[in-house]
Amino acid sequence: MTTGKHLAFYASFGTVLMLLAVTAPLALAFGFFSATGSRAQFAPLRWISQTYMALVRGIPDIAFFLFFVIALDQGIEWLRHQAKCPDWAEPIRQGNDFIVCAAAKMPLNNAPESVHQIYGFALAVLTFAIVFGAFAGNVLAGAMNTVPHGQIETAEAYGMSHRQAFWRIIVPQMWIYALPGLSNLWMVLIKATPLLFLLGVEDVVYWARELGGTKNIRFTEYPHGDWRMWYFLALLVFYLLFTKVSEIVLSRVTRKLSRGQATAGGEALRKAGAAT
């Protein structure tokens, strides 16, 4: 239980939590920008936001994860190649091979393995954020439209500009409408973390498979049969606990945000408050 491999397994839980901690705010930011973009007055911004949401939401996750990451990686290397090796004579595509000069490699070939892993992790975070940002954008755009129109009219009647009404009236109030959608996304994001494995990041699933696999006495000091079922069961419990905790937290947040809102939840809170 304390071999180097097990330590790597425990550490991989940290990887997953870290991914969630970084990806969730990033995806929310992507979502917020595309949601505001999709209602912008400036048409090209609106088109970009809407295309982004429509495209990413329409492409199957797996295809996106397999294709986009390789494309992104090669794109970065291509750009670095153009910048760093302008007098490179050979073509970048040689048959099936993708060749850039050594200085353009990302990360450099002689970088320590940890740098390679961090780079892979960063690619994963970005990919997750782009995918979930599109969904979050759709949820937020819907939430912005749900804020009662009368409130915006009132704000404008008080002399607030378009921008002021947006920041002071819509943004603070939209969260309660966005929350059901966002909490759904959060749950889906938690469950999507095993996709890390597809991106070559050694996550909990990778190590559970590796540790649980049949261990022959020739190759290990701790031989055992096929224990993958037990390791996966442990993962199941981990994910269930994690989503359960999330649910509790999210229901508290909902309660908090409902205060004073013209929603059924807000009304229930007001009545409960009046009764005491």
Binding site: G4, K5, E210, G213, N216, R218, F219, Y222
Partner: peptide, 17 residues
């Protein structure tokens, strides 16, 4: 890293074989 004895991951999580 999954084809002993050619290559596998040892108890320390390193490639071996």
């Amino acid at each position: 890293g999954a084809y002993p004895p050619y290559n596998y991951i040892d108890d320390n999580g390193q490639v071996a074989g």
